[in-house]
Every structure is written in C-alpha cells, then in structure tokens.
Design a binder for these strands. Structure first.
Lengths: 210, 210
DNA sequence: AACTCGAACCGCCACGTCTCGCATTTGGTA
DNA sequence: TACCAAATGCGAGACGTGGCGGTTCGAGTT
C-alpha cells in the first residue's frame, strides 16, 4: 500500500536543496534566534526558492523540527548496558549533552513555543519528537522492569514526567542548563543505588559515550 | 525616589479602562486562543484606543501576564497548616485547580511560548510569575525545614524543579491535565508519609526525617 | 495647562500564493 | 533507437494580506 506511485514524471526531489534548507534553518536559529527565523530567510540562506520550502513543509517550524528530530534519536543512547542505573545515567548524560550543544536549546525552545501557538504543529511536535523521546526512555524502563530493577513505587509514566518535566522546565523557565549534579540528583531519586551485589553508585564504568 | 509626583496635573489613569483591557485580553485568549490575541483585538473588545494599551504595557503579552500574575497569587494558598505534607497537598491541589480553570491553561501556555520567542518578555515573565510561584513553594519548604520535616536527601531547588517541571511539562507537552492522582504520586515522592497504618496526613507524630 | 482618552492613519515586514522560465524525468511515437 | 511532449521540481521574484508598532488628532478631565 505504501508506494503507489512508482512512475511519476518530472525530476526527483532535490536532495541537495533539502539538506541545505534543514541546515539553513538550524543555523539561522542558532545565530539569530528563533524569533528571526523566517521562510524568506531560510530560502535566501539555502539558495532556494520559497516555494520549494512551502512545497515540502507545512511551516518553517516543521523544517526546524525535522532538523532536530533526527539528531536527538542519534545522540541519545538507549542501548542495553546491563543495569537500569547505568542506562539511566547514560540517557541523562546524553540528553544533557545534546541540550548543551550550541543552538539545540534555542531550537527546542522555539519548537515548544510554536507548539503552544499553533495547535496543528503542536500535534506534529508531540508525535515526531516528544513521544519519540518518551518512547526512548520507556525502552530503558521496560528493560529495568524485566530485570526487576525499577522502583516499584514509581509508575513509568510518572518517571517520564519527572525526567522530561525537569529537563524542559530547566530549559524553558530558567537559564540553569541541567548538568552532572542534576543527573546525580535525579539518579538518586529514580534509581537509588541498592546495597546489593556490587553496584557502586559513582564507580560504575559506563563506557565512553561514543 | 518612589512616588515623587503627588501634584501631577491632568486626569488620573482610567481604572475602568485598565480592567476592561485585562479582562478583554484574558477573554480573547480563552475563547480564540493566544494565537488570535492582537493589540487591535484587545482594544476593540475593551472599547479602548490602541494607544491606551501601548502607553501602559510593553506588549500584548504583558497585558495577559498582568491579568494572570494576580490571580495565581490569590488562588494558591501557602498558609501555615501545621505540617509539610498538609501544606504541600494544599499547594498542589490549588495549583492544579487554577490550571484547570477555563482559559488559565491556554493563557499560561501562551505566556510561556512568548517568553521563549521574546527574551525581554521572558525576563519579565520569570520575575513576575515563575520566580513568584517558586517563592511561594519555597515558603512552604522553609517552614518544613524549620520543623525538620522536609526530606533531607532532596534540596529545595530540586524539589521545586520537580514540582513545577512536572506541572509545566504536563501543561505544555501533553493534554493530561494534572489531577488528584498526580498530586498523590508527587506527594508520595516528595513528602513520604511515615510508614505507619491509618491516615498519615493528619498524624502529628512525624519525627525528624533524618 | 497638563494630562488622558478614543479613533484613525501610516510604513514596515513576513506570510503565503502565484507566475515565469528553465531543467529533469518519463511515456509515447516514429 | 531517436525524438518529442507531458509532467513535475526548481530558483527567482512579484503580489495582496494582515498585524505590528508608532504617530497624530480632537475631545474630555482635572
């Protein structure tokens, strides 16, 4: 049912233009702020006609969303590390690092803002980004439940609310970017180090991120 | 330095117009959404000239902010109730009720969105609303510390991040308005009842946590 | 006289649509 | 196989729309 149009006439979609548009949108956001992100600006910087943008994306914010949704999946690991605590540590560390990368925080703030103002985009943002991030954390939590490691008192949904709530609140409402100490505090709250067989809190060797 | 102009000529500021502007801004937001809030719309609905708005407020969003900053203080109690758990319960209950009131959620989402797009307004929003809410919770926490009730493992700042983070995340990123069950879960996490039978909330006999 | 108010007008900027001319791909035809 | 015609993407830019934010005006108030 998927590909019902194998024989379309005319040129293919220009992949070069597509990438140019995505990077242009992100660069403008990083340098000038979301406020100054305009369709005409993206088109100019990407060396592209406005129509090319309107043809493929519903709005300028959707361009930015596409540019970010991919990188978040790539840069936050949910690989099996053997223990809940180690995986949550890595999840938080990766998320914070991504958030601290130049331009990412500004872009995410802009996306969340636009999601409030434009309900249609809001729905797309939730599906294509927020729920995807939530699913990534759920993967870690599912494994933890299977191992019997996850705290019984906390439902998965609440854990997700606490984790993402804190991250987003910090990003949107303060200028205190979450750091190592916050990761430690969250970890202490959500994955308390049990006095069990060799699970030292700090000494855990979670390999290099990359 | 404060009011050094007791003898100003001309008419006083029109209080009727001021209130009409505030309620008009809130009503438009409630009915049509923040997206459709315009200065001209506010002026028209309030029966007021645009100039009157520009004279007293830096932007249309500041009008909305003033309309909300007041009610939040009024509707969320931080009175001394004798116990940390009782006061936190009341704080959460009041906050959730306020959030569920018609128009309030929509308005708050709009304010937070605008705070991301306009850095200047963002600063005002933090000072006039976010930090004020945080201070309200801090009042409760301070009393709890003085009583020795607050959980020693959790710094006040983290507690605030968790509480407001969850509330805001729910409001901005999902359509699940926080309710009674969420209050119970948060309470269980942040103000664990002494592990005892019976009703823990009213029980006076909670010794120092540590 | 000093000040406020409602009303109206203006230039600006980004939006979103449209059109043009050209390039690219496919289907049909000789 | 060679060639043409239809269909589509593309860069570029013109155009009308709408809200913004700033200004001006006359009337009313103190």
């Amino acid at each position: 049912m998927a590909r019902a149009e194998p024989a379309r006439r005319g040129p293919k979609r220009n992949e070069t233009s597509r990438r140019a548009i995505l990077t242009a949108a992100f660069e403008i956001t990083r340098v000038d702020g979301v406020r100054n992100l305009t369709v005409e600006g993206i088109a100019a910087r990407a060396g592209v006609g406005k129509q090319t943008i309107y043809r493929w994306w519903p709005s300028k914010t959707d361009v930015l969303l596409e540019a970010l949704a991919v990188t978040a999946d790539l840069r936050v690991s949910v690989a099996d590390r053997g223990s809940y605590r180690a995986e949550l540590t890595e999840f938080l560390r990766d998320s914070f690092a991504l958030l601290a990368a130049p331009g990412v925080g500004e872009a995410l703030r802009g996306l969340m803002a636009e999601a409030q103002l434009d309900p249609d985009f809001g729905a797309r943002f939730r599906v294509d980004f927020l729920e995807r991030r939530r699913a990534a954390l759920a993967e870690v939590l599912d494994r933890a439940r299977a191992r019997g490691e996850a705290p019984a008192r906390l439902p998965d949904d609440l854990i997700a609310d606490l984790v993402f709530g804190t991250i987003w609140y910090r990003t949107l409402a303060t200028d205190r970017t979450p750091g190592e100490d916050d990761a430690a505090a969250l970890l202490d709250l959500l994955a308390p180090a049990v006095a069990r067989a060799g699970t030292p809190a700090e000494g855990e060797n979670h390999g290099p991120v990359e």
